[in-house]
Design a protein around this nucleic acid. Sequence first.
DNA 1: AAAAAAAGAGCGAGCGCTCGCTTTTTTTAT
DNA 2: ATAAAAAAAGCGAGCGCTCGCTCTTTTTTT
Lengths: 231, 231
Amino acid sequence: MADMSFQEFSGRVMVSVEELCRDYYRENRDLIRVKKEDVAVRNLVTIVNATIKLSCRMGFDAMSLRDLSRESGLSMGALYSYFSSKEDLLSIIQCHGQSAVERILRDNTRQESDTAVKLRNVIRTHLYLSELMSQWFYFFFMETKNLNKKYQKISVESELLTERIITDILDEGAKNGMFIIDNIQLTGSVIKAMMQDWYLKKWKYKQRNVSVETYAQFIIDVTESFIMKKT
Amino acid sequence: MADMSFQEFSGRVMVSVEELCRDYYRENRDLIRVKKEDVAVRNLVTIVNATIKLSCRMGFDAMSLRDLSRESGLSMGALYSYFSSKEDLLSIIQCHGQSAVERILRDNTRQESDTAVKLRNVIRTHLYLSELMSQWFYFFFMETKNLNKKYQKISVESELLTERIITDILDEGAKNGMFIIDNIQLTGSVIKAMMQDWYLKKWKYKQRNVSVETYAQFIIDVTESFIMKKT
DNA sequence: AAAAAAAGAGCGAGCGCTCGCTTTTTTTAT
DNA sequence: ATAAAAAAAGCGAGCGCTCGCTCTTTTTTT
């Protein structure tokens, strides 16, 4: 349900980081030198959170593994029990992180018959999530360029999927006569651009005391004024 | 004039890079070990262009000075005749680059009495410029975070100035009754966000064969549908 | 229940290497 | 011949990463 509270959302996200780490652990038991799942998952969560935090402050490239060691409280050797290279660590967070985001979005946008309501819900849900995971979203955006080709492709597909979710709704609305849209793909692109600004320019909106609810409503207003029939 | 051709624009931009380097050279004759202005400016242009090119490919941080040496055709020692540190090089490009952009924008958006026309011209001009200097704009956006506090502040002010140019026109239109706008600042923000998407997601629009003219017109349509009186 | 043995997890000095930057040598232009 | 400019060589610091070792926890034996 898209109108759920921030608290509910927040809970899901925290659970999600642990799930993400557990997924990674189970898929890579052979590479990870730590055998006990509980210990491994706990430390992975610490490592991932520390990486996101440092990367948002100084960039993943500029972050040294000694920085990460200090921030996470784990030694160099311990870190390398969980991943095989610095590049590997980046891929893990990008890949598993983005699929976690997709899962959360899917779980939180239920079926809805009215197309206009559906569009509003999707915009709001995306924005709420990007508020709660703003550091993750910022990380995804800024660090994609440092990935190898394979993971870069996955990242691009993730970007296009989000856009697709929007354009599918726009398409439905155009077909059932609820919306009037000349260029659906471009419309989807700019909606995504406006949503993206929320986490790329967080400092600006925070400084101006713009809440995510205000921003979401504004994006919805802009969108609807463009696609709804003028009466 | 905002409706000038791409060729005219292109010329101004190229001249501008040279001007930028000449300005920097004249202001820092004492620090630069190369005495002949012509030689110095020619090499500075090469260095700056190579830096932008490599930074957009791999990020400024990841670019080593040996990479830059290879790309520019100048030796390590020669490079350090032109700037005093890698950080210094970043600051030079950011600072002189952004003020060059501001100058170009000022020179190319002449006075215009009709507020609506003025708004259209500004949007189009910004987009055209960001197309011609897309690598520069991308560089400004991605590398701001690596600047020291002083230059970071300058960079933020540059971002806000661009927004201000738009909100001033929105304000004028709201006052003379041409536009109906509830939240001028947020409106300016999302216009800027949409414009920014053009150079942040260049790969996407190129892949879809969206021209900058098409995109500009679309942004103008979205904006006007939101702020113009519905008739 | 206590002691012994084994397995798991963590540590951090140190390796090879590349980085930003400097100094020395060579080339070019006047 | 002299000075300017560029190339070449080299420096120490800090990087990602490894590995020998220790400490902790669990399992086995008595």
